[in-house]
C-alpha cells in the first residue's frame, strides 16, 4: 500500500507526474475512466486530500475532466498525450545525456553507447567499453 512515493518531496506533485507518465505511455487512454477517488487513494496509500489536490491540478491542466454523475475521465484530446509524450521523452533523454556527460562521455561516445544499447548483438566488434 505504501512506499509508492518518495516522502521527501510533495506527494501530490509525484501523483501528477505519475498520471502524466501514464497518459504519455498510453497506460491511461483518452476518455478512460479514472478510478474513483476513495479507492484510488487507498491503492496509492495517500490521503484523500492529497489525491484530490493532484487530480484538481490535472483537471486545471486539461488532462482530466469530471462529468458530475459519471466520474472522472482522461481527456479525449489525443494531442495532449502526444504533448506529454514529447515532453517526457525529452526530459528522459536529457537526464540520460547529462548522466553520461557527468562521466566524461563525449557526444560521439554517447551515440555509440546508445547504438550498442539498442542493438546489443551486432555491435560487439565495435570499440571497447570506454
Amino acid at each position: 500500500m505504501s512506499y509508492q512515493f518518495q516522502n521527501d518531496s510533495p506527494i501530490y506533485a509525484q501523483i501528477v507526474d505519475r498520471f502524466k507518465r501514464d497518459i504519455a505511455r498510453g497506460a491511461l487512454l483518452p476518455g478512460e475512466r479514472v478510478t474513483p477517488v476513495r479507492e484510488l487513494a487507498l491503492t496509492l496509500g495517500v490521503s484523500l486530500n492529497t489525491l484530490q489536490r493532484a487530480l484538481t491540478d490535472l483537471e486545471r491542466e486539461g488532462l482530466l475532466y469530471t462529468e458530475r454523475t459519471a466520474g472522472r475521465f482522461v481527456t479525449t484530446d489525443r494531442s495532449q498525450a502526444d504533448i506529454l509524450r514529447r515532453a517526457l521523452s525529452e526530459r528522459t533523454a536529457q537526464t540520460y545525456v547529462e548522466a553520461l556527460r557527468d562521466m566524461n562521455f563525449t557526444d560521439g561516445d554517447i551515440l555509440a553507447l546508445t547504438q550498442r544499447t539498442l542493438e546489443p548483438h551486432t555491435n560487439k566488434k565495435e570499440e571497447d567499453t570506454p
Binding site: N7, D8, P10, I11
Partner: peptide
C-alpha cells in the same frame, strides 16, 4: 505535510 515536504526538502520521517 505537503508544505513541510516542499519547504524542508525532506520527508516527515527525516
Amino acid at each position: 505535510a505537503e508544505d513541510i515536504r516542499a519547504r524542508e526538502g525532506k520527508s516527515i520521517d527525516q
